[in-house]
């Protein structure tokens, strides 16, 4: 995070610029498609569109600068031999799956309640991660995962649902 700019791969400038540019693009799109912001008369109030416009201008300007600087560096200097683009999405398979499964988890929770959804979610992930990281055998891994699920789900249920009364039961 605290890497120096000098050490940054120029292609990172491009990637970061693209990402921030995308955010500002979505922002502009939403702003333009909210007619209420542009039609009303707000009197002495500078209006609800003032700050969004300023901040979005700043953000898109910044994103363009990053893109520009990145392009410039890629053209002018030799880029390192390492393949930045493959490195960028290296090891993202598990996190991606995890996020997708989280969404399913929430859906499952809304239908079947907290306990059932959590047991499925926790048991499968604990088992899978156990197999991957600790080379557990399928059986011992399942035992540990089961134990972890029991404690984790039980504790969260006990505290949040039973004691505090969060309505996810």
């Amino acid at each position: 995070m605290s890497e120096k700019i000098a050490k940054r791969d120029p292609r990172n400038q491009l990637a970061a610029g693209f990402y921030l540019g995308l955010i500002s693009f979505i922002g502009w799109l939403s702003l333009i498609n909210t007619p209420a912001l542009w039609t009303n008369e707000f009197g002495v109030d500078p209006g609800p569109e003032l700050l969004p416009v300023i901040v979005l201008t700043l953000l898109s300007g910044g994103a363009l600068t990053l893109l520009g600087a990145g392009t410039f560096q890629v053209i002018m200097y030799k880029t390192p031999k390492t393949n930045y683009w493959t490195k960028l999405y290296q090891n993202t398979l598990l996190p991606t799956l995890f996020v997708i499964s989280l969404i399913f988890y929430i859906g499952l929770m809304e239908i079947f309640g907290f306990i059932f959804a959590s047991i499925i979610f926790a048991l499968s992930w604990m088992w899978l991660l156990g197999l991957k990281s600790r080379s557990e055998t399928a059986v011992s891994g399942l035992f540990l995962a089961g134990l972890g699920t029991l404690i984790g789900v039980g504790l969260i249920y006990f505290v949040f649902v039973y004691l505090i009364g969060v309505p996810i039961g």
Binding site: L150, V153, G154, L155
Partner: peptide
Amino acid sequence: QIITALIAIMA
């Protein structure tokens, strides 16, 4: 904690 969890689930 395990005991608590068991109780919670049984409840």
